[in-house]
């Protein structure tokens, strides 16, 4: 204890070296993100299932409606190409909706407490790591779907179109990840969270323009689809796939009016911001 050189178990005479808050935040966020990627690498079933499910949708639904009458879809588009945008968005949406599950398991098994007794520079790093991980995961899955769709002859967006696709997906993933993390802290356990995910997933898909255009739907469903955040992600991507990329071009003829690509992105950005502001008090309370 009194020796000049600290022995193996003696408490450190001086605290850790003084470092910037940003360096600490980066170190803890990267460490937490690395943990999630290590889990994924050793349990790749999440990634495989996340790619396989939308591929099956793409192949089966594409085949089911391959002989749809001409004129059913806007601009004589093939159903496969029409469906591609919906499946890409659904893939990213599903991945983001599951973002809260690892956090919920950490809460239940006490691992979160291990993180909370550490002198984290900001406990936002726990949330930030989840956002980074889910964003990367959903982008990888989406790119895999896009490549498959291209292989099936459903097209590929051009350079600017690809950028639009990525920005749209990022906004959607941020919004839904925020929602899922909020639910992970608000609900009592993983059973309840999985139930919410099950209930939300397919109805949101069917009540969007992923599988059919608005003109194909009864009026009440058309209204629902025109208010559904998934639709605001699907339509700009669909326009990018159709090859006429323009932020000001109208991509959605909703019952309440026409919406451009920029309008859709604005709605998604507002949604992401709104959801993060909404869950922030909850996160502040739970991580305080």
């Amino acid at each position: 204890m009194t020796s000049a050189t600290p022995s193996l178990l003696s408490p450190e005479a001086a605290g850790p070296a003084q470092r910037s808050a940003l360096a600490d935040l980066t170190q803890e966020t990267l460490a937490l993100t690395r943990r999630l990627f290590l889990q994924l690498a050793r349990r790749p079933s999440t990634l495989v299932a996340g790619v396989l499910q939308p591929l099956i949708w793409l192949i089966l639904f594409g085949a089911l409606f391959a002989n749809a009458p001409e004129g059913l879809l806007p601009e004589g588009m093939s159903y496969g190409r029409f469906l591609g945008a919906g499946v890409i968005v659904f893939t990213a949406f599903s991945a983001a909706l599951n973002a809260g599950l690892p956090v919920m398991f950490d809460r239940e098994f006490g691992f979160l407490n291990r993180l909370l007794v550490a002198p984290l520079r900001s406990r936002s790093s726990i949330v930030l790591a989840s956002v980074l991980y889910i964003t990367a995961l959903s982008l990888v899955q989406s790119v895999a779907i896009m490549a498959t769709a291209w292989g099936l002859g459903y097209g590929w967006p051009g350079g600017a179109g690809l950028l639009l696709v990525l920005v749209t997906l990022l906004l959607l993933v941020f919004a839904v990840t925020g929602l899922s993390l909020g639910l992970a802290f608000a609900l009592p356990g993983h059973i309840e969270l999985i139930a919410v995910i099950f209930v939300a997933n397919l109805p949101l898909l069917f009540a969007s323009t992923a599988l059919a255009p608005l003109s194909f739907m009864p009026a009440w469903l058309g209204w629902l689809a025109a208010l559904n955040p998934l639709t605001f992600a699907i339509e700009p991507i669909r326009a990018a796939y159709a090859g006429h990329f323009s932020l000001s071009a109208v991509v959605l003829e909703a019952p309440y009016g026409a919406v451009s690509s920029a309008g859709c992105l604005g709605v998604l950005a507002a949604l992401a911001l709104g959801l993060f502001l909404l869950i922030r008090p909850l996160l502040d309370r739970k991580l305080a």
Binding site: P16, L30, A31, R35, Q39, A118
Partner: peptide
Amino acid sequence: ILSGRELLQLQGDLYH
């Protein structure tokens, strides 16, 4: 799913 060493590394990073 992590090894003991990986957990210790994580812990070390959380303590900067």
